[in-house]
């Protein structure tokens, strides 16, 4: 199982990958590896992180780099165009609905618009937690990890003063995703 996060620097793309990886590897006891983009491209420009989960929890991830993601989370137009072609044909796409204009999503791909940045601003008053809102949505939409494991990862990672804020962001994302999953009223 491969999950790719992509966007631009300052959006917390790397933290998102870290939190997800930690939730899976530490709090669910599975084997997971996280990688991130390095160098000048990681500062302000394009930014990405990836999590690979081993098929067998007893074994190390054999190839720790994301090659064909099963799940793609994009928070910029550039990230969308760069990474969409790599998404598996039956893959799942989450995109920030206000930052990405999703032209031509291949058939077979399940796509979810999540206005994470807007939700972070309106519901929490902090744009900076858009990444965690996105994670909340991801948990509900893909069940790649349990909400409790993710909460625990937040609690043990972010600075104590920001734990509440980030936990709230998770809830906002989860609630939004729950709504998305409700059968659409016609």
């Amino acid at each position: 199982m491969e999950i790719q996060f992509a966007g631009f620097g300052g959006q917390g793309i790397i933290l998102a990958g870290y939190l997800l990886g930690k939730a899976i590897a530490v709090y669910e006891g599975k084997s997971a590896s996280m990688t991130q983009s390095y160098g000048p491209e990681a500062r302000g420009g394009a930014c990405s992180s990836g999590v690979v989960v081993s098929r067998n929890p007893e074994e190390l991830v054999d190839y720790p780099r994301v090659t064909r993601p099963d799940i793609l989370v994009v928070m910029s137009q550039e990230a969308f165009s760069t990474y969409l072609p790599r998404l598996k044909p039956e893959g799942t796409l989450l995109y920030d609905a206000d930052l990405v204009n999703p032209e031509s999503i291949p058939e077979g791909v399940t796509a979810y618009p999540v206005p994470a940045t807007r939700l972070a601003e309106t519901e929490i008053g902090k744009r900076i937690v858009a990444n965690v809102v996105m994670l909340g949505a991801l948990v509900v939409l893909t069940r790649v990890v349990s909400p409790e494991a993710l909460r625990e990862a937040v609690r043990t990672t972010v600075k104590p003063d920001y734990v509440e804020l980030n936990l709230k962001a998770l809830e906002v994302g989860m609630a939004y995703a729950q709504n998305l999953l409700q059968p659409q009223e016609v």
Partner: peptide, 9 residues
């Protein structure tokens, strides 16, 4: 570099 920049348990 791959191991140095990898994050794991």
């Amino acid at each position: 570099e791959a191991v140095g920049h990898l994050t794991e348990r």
